[in-house]
Amino acid sequence: MDVTVVVDGWRLMGPGLAMTLLVSVSVMILGLGIGLLGGLTLLYGPRLMRLVVRGYVDFVRGTPLLVLIFLIFYGIPAVGIPVPNFVAAVISLGAFAGAQISELVRGGISSIPRGQTDAAMALGMTFWPRLTQVVIPQAVARTLPPLVNTTVEVVKGSSLVSLVSIVELTLATEQVVQRVQRPVPLYIAAALMYFVVNFIVSSGGRRLERRFAF
């Protein structure tokens, strides 16, 4: 009985799940881009840029994700730029992920012992070859576990964009519940779907970790 409700609800929840995945992937791409730039700026950038990134990171990390989403969702049109809901949602979650990943990149790179850069410098290597051949490959293995955490938070955080009318999994589930009035099996199903997605992310992360370990 319970299962039929879920199977019927799949017509809406399926696309909802697809939207959740679309949002999550887009956010992680944006977040990784921002995070890499942000982290490198925090470590090596000119003082002014460092302060800007620091301000951004501290502000975003001190603000509830939902408030951030509303702020960007209402704020961007308010300055005269019309953006589709989806874009606003991805920007706000992307800002959240980008702030976290900036810190992860900064932490990961600075955890590599000074001796590694000493050796690379002594061999006559300049900044970018040192960073890309010696430092970053070692930092990746260390940064993967917290990066997996961030990805899981993004997937879970994507449920909040239901509040700005994006029909991802949570909102889709709500819509089905409103029609058939069977919340429990439906929300159990939604929870399981989130769990499966995040479980795949975590396992994938563990496999990547093994690949980069030395």
Binding site: A119, A122, L123, M125, F214
Partner: peptide, 20 residues
């Protein structure tokens, strides 16, 4: 500076080999 450093080889107390 990097160019001048290519004339000088250095060996460190803690080896500093690239572990990866």
């Amino acid at each position: 500076i990097a160019k001048l450093r290519t004339e000088i080889g250095m060996v460190f107390q803690s080896f500093n080999l690239f572990p990866h």
